[in-house]
């Protein structure tokens, strides 16, 4: 995969200029270029390069999932055989109702689960039906599982770099 490298000074300034959002003006890259003292061509080329290298996942909108009707959000957690987790994770990650899927360490004895899959749905029944689909796919490779529904968002800000506050 792509190697991790610290952003150079220009990329860092570009991140700081856009982390609150892309300007809502007809020529947003021109405006960023003006703020950063470079040409729009440089801004567009750097953004394209960061997309290409995976430093930017995508340029786009993040909907608030509650606001668009996905009011049930279940973090499903699974205790699967370590030897098969790569194959199982790929399978579960491909499901269209799974928005994040990771292998994470167990914390025994309190926490036996090593595969996490976030499932969103319009209601709990839908999420639980999706959980059943995952369980069926994992079959005997899964020893036990649980689903943790969220009942409140306590904080949601995202990462901010380079600010003093």
């Amino acid at each position: 995969m792509t190697t991790t490298a610290l952003p150079d000074e220009f990329d860092r300034r570009l991140i700081i200029a856009t982390q609150a959002g892309l300007p809502l003006v007809p020529r947003p890259y021109d405006l960023l270029a003006e703020q950063l003292g470079v040409s729009a061509e440089v801004v567009k080329a750097r953004l394209a390069a960061m997309l290409e290298s995976g430093r930017i996942r995508r340029i786009g909108a993040v909907p608030n999932h509650y606001a668009i009707g996905y009011t049930a959000n279940g973090m499903s957690v699974w205790d699967v055989d370590d030897a098969h987790i790569a194959r199982l994770g790929e399978t579960i990650g491909k499901l269209d109702f799974v928005t994040h899927c990771y292998e994470r360490p167990r914390a025994l004895p309190d926490w036996p689960y090593n595969l996490f899959a976030m499932v969103h749905g319009h209601d709990r029944a839908t999420v639980l039906a999706h959980i059943d689909e995952i369980a069926a796919l994992l079959g005997p490779d899964c020893r036990r599982h649980d689903v943790l529904f969220s009942t409140a968002i306590l904080k949601k800000t995202g990462l901010r770099i380079g600010n003093d506050g």
């Binding site: 792509t2 991790t4 490298a5 610290l6 952003p7 990329d11 991140i15 856009t18 982390q19 609150a20 959002g21 892309l22 809502l24 953004l47 960061m50 290298s53 995976g54 430093r55 930017i56 996942r57 995508r58 340029i59 786009g60 909108a61 993040v62 909907p63 608030n64 606001a67 668009i68 994470r104 996490f116 949601k156 995202g158 990462l159 770099i161």
Partner: peptide, 21 residues
């Protein structure tokens, strides 16, 4: 707040940062 943000979504780990649940 129908949209929480609009713009580039940075993969912070590829930029040296860390996210931990």
């Amino acid at each position: 707040r129908v949209l929480t943000r609009f713009g580039p979504m940075f993969q912070i780990e590829r930029l040296g940062g860390r996210f931990v649940l």
